[in-house]
Design a protein around this nucleic acid. Structure first.
Length: 822
RNA sequence: GCCGGGGUGGCGAAAACGGAAAACGCGGCGGACUUAAAAUCCGCUGUCGCCUCUGGCGACUUGUGGGUUCGAUUCCCACCCCCGGCACCA
């Protein structure tokens, strides 16, 4: 029992034992099920430190739940489709399939070294046909329900490579990463999911317990605004359309409209532009198409735009309104047209100022002096220069104008969303083929269900231009129309990989199931997910898409309940030592394997949990791991070198038990809140206290009679139990070495006794005018009057109160007395 | 730019609530053990100043500036910097 702590000799041993015993095979286990889900890793190569940072605390939290008596499932799988595999193929000639599955083989071994309670029987790989056939099946179901549709949408386009580019493939200066040509946008017919159909339900987070920042971001992303769609008259010779509709949340400002702005892509632009303006307009449209949306929406750059030469009519006052185009109007928000009210909208104000357009005030601020405004006025006021609406408070004016517009048939109240339908088409190879066929006679025809999966052909040729090999793959593309049997073309777009992350956690429950995406009995037993953990970078897109998808398949009857993830915790991002996001190109990637070998998985897990609050992330440096090693060595020593037992006396026993019960209380609160750093700090403090108790015994000093055997055993047992979630191997080893029955991971989390945790004495802080002047030791339950008396009598306080008038004495029970003097 | 988060000792950080700023750990300094080193253990360690200097006293200190309060790392306003997301990286 005197040998030293050597992680390499115990970790592998226990990992094999746990696996052989099926200790973590919980899919069909007994008891109350608890689904603990952590975001599946992308198969990018070796497991990196970010995976350890995300997964080892998740494992600790899952293990804790298990110790609380729940049957916890912690599954694992691989997010395997996507751009990096394809890039690797183009760069090095390795087929995406081989690249991906080789990576998975390595990652499996690396994941096992973590010692996590993954139930490997549930493993899912999203690029397996057995998985993606159900992507296709879901697609067909959504299509049947009108939730999948085809429409034109812009994509990044490199005119030189003749290829669609991902945002990632466009350099910051807007050039193609392969050839340097300036990237533009090109409209393509693409597939969408109608997420907007669920926008209102997605705004409701009342059925989930999620961090506020995430729900706020999702709400802002959906961006619901109530307003009015209002028609402006259009009378341009040769143009059929007789009106332009705008969406506005401020119908009360309609009399202040001095211009109209269309998005440069707006279909009317080409028709209404006058001959003398055409050259300028076309140049501007071209420029706008080359910009990113972030650039277009930036509010701190000079406003740009051009006049089309055409006018429309404000139906409420009959005024002619010049029609401009400007890049800040987006085709996909509202109606793609904006009414310009410079006096009451900051952006319109800047635009009007830039182009010398007039700026009449129509909402008078309460103290308005009649002068022209120096900036847009967004506050409340009464309507002026607004015909029959003059004098109305603008809030009333909103509904009065809306009523009037509706009564005249010029528009209607409506709701607009910032969120757009989800474009799922990717012009790529390494993804799920979209199961559709284009027939010259029948149009767009779905692949019949019984023909699924539409397999991704293995023999693909990767061109350096990045064009999807599917487009020129004759055997894939040429197909008989499922409807009429005539020659037709298969759809060559594949699905966004966010489709995979929509439901991988459902597939985990029955990865080999053939009669549907999930075995209904398993779905009933496990869904929805009780706790989800993953990176904060997924706060909006993945987590919103997955909620949408869940609701859509709920309506298909595949799952029950309204939300997929009941509780959520987002960890922060672990950065390279330079404070930058880790990436191969920056060369700041920290590989975990070497550390695991040198320090052990337990120390490495604990260190990652100890360096700071899990939700904050931050730069990684290995320096501090020495503290964890020393601590684990001391814990080892508690079992390897126990104290001499004897009659310790009631005070020593009480002190030790108080330390134990206070630590159990603190540790429980911390792990419930995912505060692993302070959890481990508390365990260190308890360890240090136990070492002191032991070393104060007679073996060393002869001064004291010994350590109480029962209290010591309770202390060591509690410590090992609390250590088990964070450091599962050493906890198991010491549990065995101290003669306790296998397995520590099948024990209950310890309970604390409030009475034993209670302090007898507390330190009372005494302040004078808020400044600390003394600390006094008092009995824990001290009365207010007695506390104030002691405080005022303090030798250290009196010099600050003598000769002054005591105005108030503030007492915070058991904590502080503040004497306010003048 | 917009949305969300953050900024505390030399470093990672702690302080659910408006009530002791700096727990726990790293590093550093001093000491014990050792032939020596490593390991281990003990003590000190926010900054500045003062004194009767193995100790004690005082002032200051949580990005910057203002405010509310008996009292602010915590609440409010303005600003600066860093991180995440912004719809084809995942």
């Amino acid at each position: 029992m005197t040998d030293r702590y050597d992680p390499s000799s115990i970790e592998k041993k226990w990992q094999q034992r746990w696996e052989a015993d099926g200790l973590y095979h919980t899919l069909d286990g007994a008891g109350t099920n608890f689904y603990f889900l952590t975001m599946l890793p992308y198969t990018s190569g070796d497991l990196h430190i970010g995976h350890w940072y995300a997964m080892s605390p998740s494992d600790a939290a899952a293990r804790y739940r298990r110790m609380r008596g729940l049957n916890v499932l912690l599954p694992i799988g691989f997010d395997a489709f996507g751009l990096p595999a394809e890039n690797a193929a183009i760069r090095s000639g390795i087929h995406p399939h081989k690249w991906t599955y080789d990576n998975i083989d390595r990652m499996r071994g690396q994941l096992r070294s973590m010692g996590a309670m993954f139930d490997w029987s549930t493993e899912v790989i999203t690029s397996d046909p057995e998985f993606y056939r159900w992507n296709q099946w879901f697609f067909l179901k959504l299509w049947e329900r009108g939730l999948a549709y085809r429409a034109m949408a812009p994509a990044n386009w490199c005119p030189s490579c003749q290829t669609v580019l991902a945002n990632e493939q466009v350099l910051p200066d807007g050039a193609c990463e392969r050839c340097g040509t300036p990237v533009t946008h090109r409209d393509l017919e693409q597939w969408f999911f109608r997420i907007t159909a669920y926008a209102d339900e997605l705004l409701d987070h009342s059925k989930v317990d999620w961090p506020d920042p995430v729900t706020t971001m999702q709400k802002n992303w959906i961006g619901r605004s109530e307003g009015v769609e209002i028609a402006f008259g259009l009378d341009v010779p040769g143009v059929d359309q007789k009106e332009i509709r705008v969406f506005t949340t401020r119908p009360d400002t309609i009399f202040g409209v001095t211009f109209m702005v269309l998005a440069p892509e707006h279909p009317l632009v080409d028709q209404i532009t006058t001959a003398d303006r055409r050259a300028e307009v076309e140049t501007y449209v071209e420029q706008a198409r080359a910009q990113t949306e972030i650039e277009r929406l930036s509010t701190d750059r000079p406003k740009t735009g051009v006049f089309t030469g055409a006018y429309c009519k404000n139906l409420l006052n009959g005024e002619q309104v010049p029609i401009w185009i400007a890049d800040y109007a987006l085709l996909w928000y509202g109606t793609g047209a904006v009414m310009g009210v410079p006096a009451h909208d900051q952006r319109d104000f800047a635009f009007a100022k830039q182009f010398g357009l007039s700026c009449p005030v129509v909402i008078a601020p309460p103290d308005w002096d009649g002068e022209p405004p120096e900036e847009a006025y967004l506050g409340e006021g009464s309507m002026v220069n607004s015909g029959q609406f003059d004098g109305l408070a603008n809030e009333e004016g909103k509904s009065a104008v809306a009523d009037y517009v509706e009564s005249q048939g010029w528009g209607k109240r409506t709701v607009s969303y910032r969120i757009r339908d989800w474009l799922i088409s990717r012009q790529r190879y390494w993804g799920t083929p979209i199961p559709m066929v284009h027939c010259p006679k029948c149009g767009v025809v779905p692949v019949p269900e019984e023909q699924l999966p539409v397999l991704l052909p293995e023999d693909a040729e990767f061109k350096p231009t990045g064009e999807s090999p599917l487009v020129r793959h004759e055997r894939f593309v040429n197909v008989a129309c499922p409807n009429c049997g005539e020659p037709a073309r298969r759809e060559t777009d594949t699905m966004d990989t966010f489709m995979d992350s929509n439901w991988y956690f459902i597939r985990y429950l029955s990865p080999g199931y053939h009669d549907g995406p999930v075995d209904p009995a398993r779905a009933k037993a496990w869904l929805p997910v009780d706790q989800y953990t993953g990176g904060a970078e997924h706060a909006v897109m993945h987590l919103l898409y997955a909620r949408f998808f869940w609701k859509a398949i709920r309506d298909l009857g595949v799952v029950e309940g309204d939300e997929p993830f009941l509780r959520l915790f987002n960890q922060g991002q672990i950065l390279g030592p330079d404070g930058q996001r880790m990436s191969k190109s920056r060369g700041n990637v920290v590989a975990p394997d070497e550390y695991v070998q040198r320090y052990g998985a337990d120390a490495f897990r604990c260190y990652l949990m100890f360096i700071g609050p899990w939700d904050e992330g931050g730069p990684f440096g290995i320096e501090g791991i020495a503290g964890i090693q020393r601590w684990l060595n001391r814990v080892w020593g508690l079992v390897a070198n126990p104290p001499a037992f004897g009659d310790a006396g009631p005070n020593a026993v009480r002190d030790m038990r108080r330390a134990v019960h206070q630590t159990v209380r603190k540790a429980t609160e911390d792990i419930e809140r995912f505060r692993f750093n302070t959890l481990l700090a508390a365990l260190m403090e308890l360890t240090n206290a136990l070492v002191r108790h032991r070393d104060a015994g007679p073996a060393q000093t002869g001064a004291r009679p010994g350590v109480d055997r029962e209290a010591w055993n309770e202390a060591v047992e509690s410590l090992l139990l609390m250590l088990a979630p964070a450091a599962p191997h050493i906890a198991e080893e010491l549990w065995e070495r101290s003669g306790r029955p296998y397995s520590v991971h099948q024990q209950s989390w310890p309970a604390w006794d409030e009475e034993l945790a209670r302090e007898d004495e507390v330190t009372l802080v005494v302040q004078v005018n808020g400044k600390l002047r003394d600390r006094i030791q008092v009995p824990a339950g001290i009365e207010e009057e007695r506390a104030k008396e002691l405080a005022l009598a303090s030798e250290r306080v009196r010099p600050h109160t003598d000769g002054k008038k005591v105005q108030r004495v503030i007492y915070v029970p058991g904590k502080l007395v503040n004497v306010v003097v003048r």
